[in-house]
Computed example of a mutant assay.
Amino acid sequence: MAKHDLGDIEAIRVNLQGWMREHLADARTLTLGELKFPEESGESSVTLILDADNGGAKERYICRMKPRASEVFDVHDLLMQYQMMEVMHDNDIPVPPLLGYEADESLLGSDFYLMGFVDGQIPTDNPPWAFGGWVTELSDEQRATQWRNGLETLAKIHSIDPERYDLARLPRSAPDQAPSQQELDKFNAMVTEEERACLAEPVLQALDYLNANLPAEGPRRLCWGDARPGNIIWKDLRPNAVIDWEMASIADPLQEVAWWYWIDYINCVGLGAERPGGLPQLQDIYDQWQALTGLPTDHAAYFDLFAVVRYAIILERKFMAMRRAGVERIGNFVDPFVEQQLARVQGK
């Protein structure tokens, strides 16, 4: 799913090469080779791996651009993503080297930004890392260290004061609304009549519950959006770069502490894999995050439900696209977790 139809890929290569020669230092003779897509990760925005020869020196870059069509999100604000990474860099949170944003869509058919390539390893999405690979080969103690380091980075993001920055492009709720109203509205809007007909009844009931019980109070912090280990480039069990900022917003950060746990848990247990040892339990994650940030966790159960409902909606949109392409219907493996968490918040 990481490969996208971009049209004339050779024209993109030539135009990108020309842009790099003009905008990068000491790159007047730079030559780009064949453009590549990451094969095991990347689901939404287009990621291109660029191998270049620059006067005999071998260099590697990453280009991010909008897809022609998206299975999940209708809006891809690349400038917002770039600005978020600038903020992260300013706060010593590791991100790839930022080499430039280009607004002119005539060059590649989309605006785009360029980054330096970061060494390290990424837990795979396709298939999910729990089914084998470098993370499963770690010891329990190493995995515990890795997850703790990742959560410390997440807590550091949530400790940034958003008032210090001009973040007008960043989605957020109005001042008189609940901190996560905008996020809830976004997922309400994603449930079209077509998707409503496909979603399981417990998911629709859970969405009704979320709309009726959204916490009115809570902190408003910078949120990464798609906070999970698979959106981190790891080196020596530590984040070497935090990537994929397309879901970023200002909202109650509890929503993505829940996401950090649940998307990873469901992609393991929900698909029939055994959860590897060393990974923290849900309450341990909330306790550690609260100790690091000093922020409240009073509404954790609500955001646990929000996390699994969000994932159910996202997956159903992907499955709908697959069915339109002729693939047989796939059951939404998130549904049982929605039913479980809905019963939990309702005290059943």
Results as ranks from 00 to 15, higher is better:
residue 278 G to W: 09
residue 286 Y to K: 01
residue 253 P to K: 01
residue 66 K to G: 11
residue 225 G to Y: 07
residue 290 Q to T: 15
residue 105 E to G: 03
residue 242 V to Y: 15
residue 68 R to G: 12
residue 251 A to C: 13
residue 290 Q to D: 06
residue 170 L to T: 06
residue 343 A to P: 00
residue 171 P to F: 02
residue 64 R to S: 02
residue 197 A to V: 08
residue 281 Q to M: 03
residue 239 P to G: 10
residue 201 E to S: 07
residue 95 V to Y: 01
residue 253 P to T: 10
residue 42 G to E: 12
residue 185 D to M: 07
residue 314 I to A: 12
residue 104 D to G: 04
residue 142 Q to M: 10
residue 34 E to V: 15
residue 55 G to E: 13
residue 314 I to W: 10
residue 236 D to S: 11
residue 132 G to N: 05
residue 119 D to T: 09
residue 210 L to C: 00
residue 127 P to M: 13
residue 123 P to M: 09
residue 94 P to W: 14
residue 252 D to I: 03
residue 297 T to K: 12
residue 7 G to S: 02
residue 98 L to Y: 00
residue 74 D to P: 01
residue 207 L to R: 05
residue 83 Q to V: 07
residue 153 T to C: 08
residue 123 P to L: 06
residue 258 A to T: 09
residue 66 K to H: 06
residue 269 V to E: 05
residue 226 D to L: 05
residue 331 G to T: 14
residue 72 V to W: 13
residue 279 L to S: 06
residue 338 V to W: 07
residue 25 A to K: 13
residue 337 F to Y: 15
residue 291 A to W: 04
residue 193 E to M: 06
residue 338 V to Q: 10
residue 90 D to N: 13
residue 149 N to T: 03
residue 20 M to N: 06
residue 236 D to G: 03
residue 124 T to A: 09
residue 36 K to E: 15
residue 224 W to T: 04
residue 13 R to Q: 12
residue 173 S to I: 15
residue 18 G to L: 04
residue 17 Q to R: 06
residue 78 L to W: 04
residue 232 I to R: 00
residue 47 T to C: 10
residue 152 E to I: 13
residue 83 Q to R: 11
residue 341 Q to L: 13
residue 272 G to M: 03
residue 174 A to F: 02
residue 118 V to F: 05
residue 60 R to Q: 15
residue 79 L to D: 12
residue 75 V to Y: 06
residue 8 D to S: 04
residue 130 A to Y: 01
residue 268 C to L: 09
residue 170 L to Q: 02
residue 246 E to K: 06
residue 297 T to V: 12
residue 315 L to S: 15
residue 92 D to Q: 10
